[in-house]
Deep mutational scan, measured.
Amino acid sequence: AVSDRLIGRKGVVMEAISPQNSGLVKVDGETWRATSGTVLDVGEEVSVKAIEGVKLVVEKLE
Protein backbone atom coordinates (compact mmCIF):
# COMPACT_ATOMS: atom_id res chain seq x y z
CA ALA A 1 0.00 0.00 0.00
CA VAL A 2 1.12 3.56 -0.63
CA SER A 3 0.96 4.32 3.09
CA ASP A 4 3.42 1.53 3.97
CA ARG A 5 6.30 3.62 2.60
CA LEU A 6 5.62 6.16 5.37
CA ILE A 7 6.64 3.87 8.24
CA GLY A 8 9.90 5.14 9.68
CA ARG A 9 9.61 8.51 7.94
CA LYS A 10 9.88 11.80 9.80
CA GLY A 11 7.10 14.35 9.94
CA VAL A 12 6.00 17.55 11.65
CA VAL A 13 2.86 18.04 13.75
CA MET A 14 0.47 20.49 12.05
CA GLU A 15 -2.43 20.11 14.53
CA ALA A 16 -1.86 19.06 18.16
CA ILE A 17 -2.25 15.36 18.99
CA SER A 18 -3.14 13.74 22.31
CA PRO A 19 -4.07 10.21 23.36
CA GLN A 20 -7.74 11.29 23.33
CA ASN A 21 -7.71 13.29 20.09
CA SER A 22 -6.14 12.71 16.71
CA GLY A 23 -4.36 15.57 14.99
CA LEU A 24 -2.53 16.25 11.75
CA VAL A 25 1.04 15.61 10.66
CA LYS A 26 2.83 16.46 7.44
CA VAL A 27 5.04 13.70 6.03
CA ASP A 28 6.81 14.01 2.66
CA GLY A 29 4.69 17.04 1.83
CA GLU A 30 1.39 15.23 2.47
CA THR A 31 -0.91 15.88 5.43
CA TRP A 32 -2.24 12.85 7.33
CA ARG A 33 -4.50 12.38 10.33
CA ALA A 34 -2.44 10.88 13.13
CA THR A 35 -2.70 9.48 16.63
CA SER A 36 -0.18 9.06 19.43
CA GLY A 37 0.00 7.73 22.96
CA THR A 38 1.44 11.04 24.12
CA VAL A 39 0.69 14.74 23.73
CA LEU A 40 2.40 16.27 20.69
CA ASP A 41 2.33 20.01 20.02
CA VAL A 42 2.34 21.85 16.71
CA GLY A 43 5.83 22.02 15.24
CA GLU A 44 7.19 18.96 17.02
CA GLU A 45 9.05 16.43 14.89
CA VAL A 46 7.69 12.90 14.91
CA SER A 47 8.38 9.56 13.29
CA VAL A 48 5.74 7.26 11.82
CA LYS A 49 5.49 3.99 13.76
CA ALA A 50 2.47 2.31 12.18
CA ILE A 51 -0.65 2.83 10.13
CA GLU A 52 -4.16 2.06 11.40
CA GLY A 53 -6.71 2.41 8.65
CA VAL A 54 -6.22 5.90 7.24
CA LYS A 55 -4.44 7.25 10.33
CA LEU A 56 -0.73 7.25 11.06
CA VAL A 57 0.52 6.29 14.51
CA VAL A 58 3.40 8.62 15.43
CA GLU A 59 5.76 9.31 18.30
CA LYS A 60 8.03 12.22 19.14
CA LEU A 61 11.50 12.09 17.63
CA GLU A 62 14.15 11.71 20.30
Rank of each mutant, 00 (worst) to 15 (best):
residue 1 A to F: 05
residue 1 A to Y: 05
residue 1 A to I: 11
residue 3 S to N: 11
residue 3 S to H: 10
residue 3 S to I: 11
residue 3 S to A: 11
residue 4 D to T: 14
residue 4 D to R: 04
residue 4 D to Y: 03
residue 4 D to M: 10
residue 4 D to L: 09
residue 5 R to T: 15
residue 5 R to A: 15
residue 5 R to F: 15
residue 6 L to T: 03
residue 6 L to S: 02
residue 7 I to M: 09
residue 7 I to Q: 03
residue 7 I to E: 03
residue 7 I to T: 04
residue 7 I to H: 03
residue 7 I to R: 05
residue 8 G to F: 03
residue 8 G to M: 03
residue 8 G to K: 04
residue 8 G to D: 03
residue 8 G to T: 03
residue 8 G to A: 04
residue 8 G to V: 02
residue 8 G to H: 04
residue 8 G to C: 04
residue 9 R to F: 13
residue 9 R to A: 07
residue 9 R to E: 05
residue 9 R to V: 04
residue 10 K to D: 06
residue 10 K to T: 08
residue 10 K to Q: 09
residue 11 G to H: 00
residue 11 G to K: 00
residue 11 G to M: 02
residue 11 G to D: 01
residue 11 G to P: 01
residue 11 G to V: 03
residue 12 V to R: 12
residue 13 V to E: 00
residue 13 V to A: 03
residue 14 M to P: 00
residue 14 M to N: 05
residue 14 M to A: 08
residue 14 M to I: 10
residue 14 M to D: 04
residue 14 M to T: 12
residue 15 E to A: 15
residue 15 E to D: 07
residue 15 E to M: 15
residue 15 E to Q: 14
residue 16 A to M: 14
residue 16 A to K: 15
residue 16 A to R: 15
residue 16 A to E: 07
residue 16 A to W: 14
residue 17 I to N: 02
residue 17 I to Y: 02
residue 17 I to M: 06
residue 17 I to W: 02
residue 18 S to G: 09
residue 18 S to F: 11
residue 18 S to V: 10
residue 18 S to R: 14
residue 19 P to V: 06
residue 19 P to T: 05
residue 19 P to F: 11
residue 20 Q to G: 14
residue 20 Q to M: 11
residue 20 Q to Y: 15
residue 20 Q to K: 09
residue 20 Q to S: 12
residue 20 Q to N: 10
residue 21 N to I: 13
residue 21 N to W: 13
residue 21 N to C: 15
residue 21 N to H: 11
residue 22 S to T: 08
residue 22 S to Q: 08
residue 22 S to N: 12
residue 22 S to G: 09
residue 23 G to F: 03
residue 23 G to R: 01
residue 23 G to I: 02
residue 24 L to Q: 08
residue 25 V to N: 01
residue 25 V to K: 00
residue 25 V to A: 08
residue 26 K to P: 00
residue 26 K to Q: 11
residue 27 V to W: 02
residue 27 V to T: 03
residue 27 V to L: 06
residue 28 D to Q: 11
residue 28 D to A: 12
residue 28 D to N: 09
residue 28 D to S: 06
residue 28 D to V: 09
residue 28 D to P: 01
residue 28 D to C: 07
residue 29 G to W: 09
residue 29 G to L: 08
residue 29 G to F: 10
residue 29 G to K: 07
residue 29 G to D: 08
residue 29 G to S: 11
residue 30 E to S: 05
residue 30 E to V: 06
residue 30 E to W: 04
residue 30 E to H: 08
residue 31 T to W: 08
residue 31 T to G: 04
residue 31 T to A: 08
residue 32 W to E: 01
residue 33 R to E: 07
residue 33 R to W: 12
residue 34 A to R: 00
residue 34 A to V: 02
residue 34 A to N: 01
residue 34 A to G: 04
residue 35 T to S: 10
residue 35 T to G: 07
residue 35 T to N: 08
residue 35 T to P: 01
residue 35 T to E: 08
residue 36 S to A: 09
residue 36 S to C: 06
residue 36 S to E: 01
residue 37 G to V: 14
residue 37 G to S: 09
residue 37 G to A: 12
residue 37 G to C: 08
residue 37 G to T: 11
residue 38 T to G: 14
residue 38 T to R: 11
residue 38 T to H: 08
residue 38 T to N: 08
residue 38 T to W: 15
residue 38 T to I: 10
residue 39 V to D: 11
residue 39 V to T: 14
residue 39 V to N: 10
residue 39 V to H: 14
residue 39 V to R: 11
residue 39 V to S: 12
residue 40 L to K: 02
residue 40 L to N: 03
residue 40 L to G: 01
residue 40 L to V: 08
residue 40 L to Y: 04
residue 40 L to I: 12
residue 41 D to H: 13
residue 41 D to G: 13
residue 41 D to C: 06
residue 41 D to R: 15
residue 42 V to F: 07
residue 42 V to I: 11
residue 42 V to N: 05
residue 43 G to S: 07
residue 43 G to D: 09
residue 43 G to R: 11
residue 43 G to A: 07
residue 43 G to W: 08
residue 44 E to W: 12
residue 44 E to K: 05
residue 44 E to C: 06
residue 45 E to S: 11
residue 45 E to I: 12
residue 45 E to D: 09
residue 46 V to T: 02
residue 46 V to Y: 01
residue 46 V to P: 01
residue 47 S to Q: 11
residue 47 S to H: 13
residue 48 V to M: 02
residue 48 V to A: 02
residue 48 V to F: 01
residue 49 K to M: 12
residue 49 K to L: 15
residue 49 K to V: 13
residue 50 A to K: 09
residue 50 A to F: 06
residue 50 A to T: 05
residue 50 A to R: 09
residue 50 A to C: 06
residue 51 I to P: 01
residue 51 I to T: 06
residue 52 E to I: 11
residue 52 E to V: 14
residue 52 E to S: 10
residue 52 E to G: 04
residue 52 E to P: 02
residue 53 G to H: 05
residue 53 G to D: 08
residue 53 G to T: 04
residue 53 G to R: 04
residue 54 V to P: 08
residue 54 V to D: 14
residue 55 K to P: 02
residue 55 K to H: 13
residue 55 K to D: 13
residue 56 L to G: 01
residue 56 L to H: 01
residue 56 L to C: 04
residue 57 V to G: 02
residue 57 V to Q: 05
residue 57 V to P: 00
residue 57 V to D: 03
residue 57 V to L: 09
residue 57 V to F: 13
residue 58 V to Y: 00
residue 58 V to I: 03
residue 58 V to N: 01
residue 58 V to D: 00
residue 59 E to D: 11
residue 59 E to V: 14
residue 59 E to Y: 15
residue 59 E to H: 10
residue 60 K to R: 13
residue 61 L to P: 05
residue 61 L to A: 11
residue 61 L to I: 10
residue 62 E to P: 07
residue 62 E to F: 15
residue 62 E to Y: 15
residue 62 E to L: 14
residue 62 E to V: 13
